[in-house]
């Protein structure tokens, strides 16, 4: 009886513990840490947004240049991909600012809360 009772008992206790831990986890990020991180988050955002836009344009130009190089379509690849890269840069900025919720619509919103 005691032998049989033990594993079930332990499992039950483990489940209780997990439930209690999960309940605590939810409280903590919204309460304690979120308020404390307020000042840092603006600075982090500023650093993030500027590089997002530049990266879009840079990747567009690099892709266009590479395609021109391979296919000999200069300068059309560069022109088209520069514009696409510009668009991607804007998209990156809006997305990381949390103004557009795509690319996994959960990600930008939650990331913002986290910052």
């Amino acid at each position: 009886m005691a032998n049989r009772g033990k594993p079930g008992d332990l499992d039950g206790r483990r489940r209780d513990l997990e439930a209690a831990l999960a309940a605590r986890r939810r409280e903590r990020p919204s309460g304690g840490e979120g308020a404390e991180r307020g000042g840092k988050s603006d600075f982090a955002n500023a650093l993030k947004l500027s590089s997002e836009f530049i990266a879009g344009v840079v990747v567009g130009v690099a892709l266009g240049w590479f395609i021109d190089r391979m296919a000999g379509t200069s300068p059309w690849g560069l022109i088209i991909f520069l514009l696409l890269g510009f668009g991607a840069g804007i998209l990156n900025v809006l997305r990381s600012a949390g103004l557009i919720a795509e690319f996994g619509s959960k990600a930008p919103k939650k990331g913002d809360d986290d910052l």
Binding site: K48, S51, I54, A55, V58, G60, L84, L91, F103
Partner: peptide, 22 residues
């Protein structure tokens, strides 16, 4: 889709350039 692909490809660039440049 083209813009999304370029945006995805720009991620490693922005990730690395941000850290290195700072």
């Amino acid at each position: 889709v083209a813009i999304e692909v370029v945006s995805f490809l720009s991620r490693p660039v922005s990730l690395s350039v941000r850290l290195f440049a700072n």
